[in-house]
Computed example of a mutant assay.
Amino acid sequence: MTLHDDAVLTLKGYDTDDAGQQELRQAYLDHLAGHPDGMWKACGAGHLTASALVIDPERGRVLLTLHRKLRMWLQMGGHCEQQDPTLEAAALREATEESGIPGLTLLPGGPVRLDRHPIPAPCNWHLDVQYAATATAGATERISEESLDLRWFPYAEVAEVADASVVRLLESARARLGQAG
């Protein structure tokens, strides 16, 4: 199975009652149907990306990266690579690389959210498939070359530092954890 095939199956299995998320899921599926290269950065019409919000649910906090290029506090994530067997694997790889934390575990149940956002040409769109991951107790983060900073934020402070897409991702992840607040 190719990563493209896995993405289609993952998106078809993404179960949500949210009408906006249902529309995005269909847009992602349409994109993949129309673009055999829709998983890769080279696709001019946009491409899928995979990300993961790193959560410490026991302490009520999330790890965000101050993205070097965008200069925004975001979840870990990025482009899929040829060696990624699945979207989950791509999200976990990105989260591990950017957080420096080994042993992250994705929350069960597949993606937590979808988020489509414009990016500068030539790519035009990131079609982000968003997961959430938990860190092992006592895990120590390490800043990667893609980050200006890496910091844990209490749930209540995320809206003060990050954009609405990160806040929505946190809300969905907390709901998945049974911590809706």
Score class of each variant (00 low, 15 high):
Leu169Gln: 05
Asp84Arg: 08
His126Ile: 01
Met1Thr: 05
Ser99Trp: 00
Gln21Met: 08
Ile143Trp: 05
Thr49Tyr: 09
Glu88Arg: 07
Glu171Asp: 14
Arg151Pro: 01
Asn124Gly: 09
His47Gly: 10
His126Gln: 08
Trp152His: 01
Pro120Met: 12
Arg68Val: 02
Leu11Glu: 12
Leu63His: 00
Asp56His: 02
Ala50Ile: 04
His79Val: 01
Cys123Ser: 11
Leu66Phe: 14
Gly103Thr: 09
Ile55Arg: 00
Leu127Asp: 05
Ala45Gln: 10
Glu160Tyr: 06
Arg93Pro: 00
Val166Ser: 05
Arg61Pro: 04
Leu53Gly: 04
His47Val: 12
Thr96Phe: 03
Leu11Lys: 01
Gly44Glu: 15
Tyr28Val: 15
Ala162Tyr: 02
Thr16Arg: 08
Ala164Asp: 01
Ser172Asp: 14
Ile143Gly: 01
Tyr28Gly: 07
Gln21Trp: 02
Asp84Ala: 13
Asp37Pro: 07
Ala156Phe: 06
Ala132Phe: 06
Val166Leu: 02
His117Gly: 13
Ile55Asp: 00
Ala175Thr: 14
Gly100Ile: 05
Leu150Ala: 07
Thr96Ala: 05
Ala180Gly: 12
Ala50Phe: 08
Cys80Pro: 02
Leu63Asn: 00
Asp163Met: 12
Leu150Gln: 07
Glu146Thr: 09
Thr140Asn: 07
Thr136Ile: 11
Ala52Cys: 07
Gln179Phe: 10
Gly110Arg: 11
Gln26Phe: 10
Leu53Ser: 03
Gly20Ser: 15
Met39Thr: 14
Arg61His: 03
Leu87Met: 10
Asp37Phe: 04
His47Lys: 11
Leu170Ser: 05
His47Cys: 14
Glu141Thr: 02
Gly78Trp: 06
Pro108Leu: 09
His117Gln: 12
Thr105Pro: 06
Asp115Glu: 06
Arg93Cys: 00
Asp37Ser: 11
Gly13Met: 03
His79Cys: 02
Glu58Lys: 06
Ala139Phe: 13
Ser172Ile: 06
Ser51Gln: 10
Ala91Arg: 10
Phe153Thr: 06
Gln83His: 14
Ala162Arg: 07
Gln82Phe: 06
Ile143His: 04
Leu170Gly: 07
Val129Cys: 03
Glu81Pro: 04
Asp30Tyr: 11
Arg25Thr: 03
Asp128Trp: 04
Ala50Tyr: 11
Pro102Ala: 15
Val62Tyr: 00
Gly109Val: 11
Leu169Phe: 06
Ala121Asn: 10
Met72Cys: 12
Leu150Lys: 02
Pro36Asp: 12
Val161Met: 03
Glu94Leu: 04
Ile119Asp: 12
Glu88Asn: 01
Glu88Tyr: 03
Glu94Pro: 01
Ala162His: 02
Tyr14Thr: 05
Leu177Gln: 03
Leu177Ala: 02
Leu170Trp: 02
Pro57Ala: 10
Arg68Tyr: 08
Thr105Gln: 15
His117Thr: 15
Ala164His: 13
Gly13Ala: 12
Leu114Val: 05
Thr136Lys: 11
Ala121Gln: 14
Glu146Met: 14
Ala42Gly: 13
Asp15His: 15
Ala50Gln: 09
His35Arg: 08
Ala180Gln: 15
Ala137Leu: 11
His31Met: 13
Ile119Glu: 13
Arg116Glu: 15
Leu169Tyr: 03
Gly46Phe: 09
Ala19Gly: 11
Met76Ile: 01
Tyr131Asn: 00
Asp56Ile: 10
Ser147Glu: 09
Trp40Pro: 05
Gly181Met: 09
Ala164Gln: 13
Lys41Val: 00
His126Arg: 15
Ala137Gln: 15
Leu169Met: 10
